[in-house]
Amino acid sequence: MLGDIASVIVDGALISAVYALIAIGFTMVFGVGGVLNLAHGALIMAGAYTYLSLVSDSILASVTLHPIVAFPLTIVIVGLISYGLYVVLVRTIEENVVITFLATIVVAIAFTELVTLVFHAQPYQYSVVPGVLQVQALGTRILYVELAAFVASWGAMGLLWYYVTKTDSGRSIRATSMSERGAMLTGVDVSGVRARTWLVAGGLAGIAGVFLGGIGAAEPTMWLEPLALAFIIVVVGGIGSIKGSVAAAYIVGYLQTATGQFLGQSVRGIMSLVVLVVVLLVLPQGLYGTEFVHE
């Protein structure tokens, strides 16, 4: 029993960090542009497949990079895909919320089809950091890739924190998410802010994708569950709030892990839905959200 609790604490901490990374990107894009980006999951998948293509000789025989090179390159590529998605598609339609919402669904589905076409419906596994840590006392084994995911996620969140609190460029993102009109009046280039936000969100999704694929496998449906979780986390944490996303990611991650451990793996997803309903009823603005104000 003690071992079970300890392993829930460890497992929950590891996976929640990745969830937080996904949710932060999702919530930033919504907070800044008001866009509910359902293609966010597709960006996660892009991270996994891009990394796979760069490191594995079975995809592109001529390209086999060392993980240390491939990892940052993947982040940049996925960030640029996300940026491109905004500049080419979303920017022209973002005034219409419904059309934007639908367009991002179409992008997600089209991307899934594309991946199926190119990589077929086979699950690819790849190694990011090989090896395993035996934790005899807890009766569990932790993969190095899970530790790496934890470290990289917190590293990325730290950098993001620094960026949005200490740099002008980052502060303008926060300003825009607080009040677009206020930001404009103080001379912030809102359009540029939005594009930067998509770039950053894409990079974060890329990191999450590399690790989710490394712990599990890269396959064309791998984005569905993370996207659904990001949804729940963002609502629970408060839409637009980075701090809220991190807190809610840990709540959802721990709930999932504990439910799986103590109530059975087949119901591990249910508790987070219960929390979602409770939050919507009791605390509709979420943990750290602000009430919507009509401007």
């Binding site: 392993s7 569990t140 084994r141 932790i142 599990g216 087949s266």
Partner: peptide, 15 residues
Amino acid sequence: NGLATDTTSFGSVLD
């Protein structure tokens, strides 16, 4: 043990 059909994490099952 039954596992949800969308299960992707296996640490606790193996343990």
